[in-house]
Design a protein around this nucleic acid. Structure first.
Lengths: 213, 213
DNA sequence: ACCTGAACACCGTTCAAGT
DNA sequence: ACCTGAACACCGTTCAAGT
């Protein structure tokens, strides 16, 4: 009766338990304090047990990064659901979601983007990180159809857009900015990005300009 | 005579030697391979010797980050010397210099920006990193005086500008971008940034537009 | 299949002791 | 002042062995 009901401590999902605990200690004590042996200790298994699920410490870190990318992807996707159609609204929601994730998961974001993108990196990791840029591409495409984003190859706008958001998010996450007003900073970045995306003759306020030829 | 001329192995500048060697192994073998004991071995001193110069491994990493910021500052400053006055030229030179540094010193850049910006972090480190943003501020101020950058608080433009460059540089450094054409990517980012900075009525090519009121 | 225990080579840090 | 040698507690990884 002990084999069926009393599987005693953790079994079936030591892998998941390792990832969960790893994320906790990453958040609470930083990346330097992340050790396989301590993880095993916390979970009450022998120090060699993790090797059944992750061949390497790096393999665990990669898996953690993958979780991070998947969760970031979900967060960004969700940000587009309760928001209006105008491009400015969608971009604002995306930017706020990205920055919110970055400041709420600073150590994880750092880990995600410091993973070596070797050709040999886990395919799932690569897929998860690419999924994110797809979102930016969709956003730009839609903005162009609405005439709120200047025409041109989607990538030539989506990549700068993404790097701007990512740059601000990662700097905001890695320490207080020189400026003491993070909210204003974010609004400035959003406004800057909107200008970078806008058509040559802004359609928003001023109708007295000459229309594009 | 041995105390004056034959100081034997390294002495006077073990500290500098440690930093130099640390940067080499960081570049060649990555941050995970950076160990105080191996550094000491490489330099022919005992494994306890480094502690005379850096109280901690973290103290060495902070010092390494500081030299990184100083060198990046010099690189960016130098990029402004042999370039014309127009804002677009200056920005282009700055962006290319930043990305060049990032791709040429990927591991170091990563280390620089993953340093915890505690209030207790070395003052020199903080100063070195602030120096950089001063450059962006000067650039924007000058662009505004020339009428090539839209008016407004300098910070509201300088910060987005900086985050855009940094975001692209750090992504470009941390692995090949999805796109296979890094040069075009950089040009796209520069063009995007210029639009973000530009006055409402672009002064560049098309003179048939209505001038600003 | 999943885990344990022991073993190995490597760490960072500290501290008495040497010169 | 600057460095050594030994010691301590901690790693990651491997591998025979258990259930």
């Amino acid at each position: 009766m002990q084999t069926r009901q009393t599987r005693r401590y953790h079994h079936g999902d030591l892998r998941a338990a390792l990832l969960t605990r790893a994320e906790e200690t990453l958040r609470e004590k930083g990346p330097a304090a992340l050790s396989l042996r301590e993880l095993a200790r916390d979970l009450g298994v022998s120090h060699a047990a993790p090797s059944r699920h992750f061949k390497d410490k790096q393999a665990l870190l990669d898996a953690l990064g993958q979780v991070g990318f998947e969760r970031l992807g979900e967060t960004l996707t969700a940000s587009q659901e309760a928001v209006g159609e105008p491009f400015a609204d969608r971009l604002g929601a995306l930017a706020r979601a990205y920055v919110g994730f970055a400041t709420g998961n600073a150590e994880l974001l750092d880990l995600m983007f410091s993973i070596k993108h070797d050709p040999e990196a886990s395919e799932a990791l690569v897929r998860a990180s690419r999924n994110m840029s797809t979102l930016a591409i969709r956003l730009i495409g839609e903005g162009q159809r609405r005439g709120e984003v200047r025409p041109g190859p989607v990538d030539s706008i989506a990549l700068p857009l993404f790097t701007t958001l990512h740059g601000f998010a990662s700097i905001a996450a890695s320490g207080p900015l020189p400026s003491q007003t993070p909210d204003t900073d974010l609004e400035n970045v959003i406004a800057f990005t909107l200008r970078g995306c806008a058509p040559d003759t802004p359609a928003r306020d001023d109708q007295s300009r000459t229309p594009p030829r």
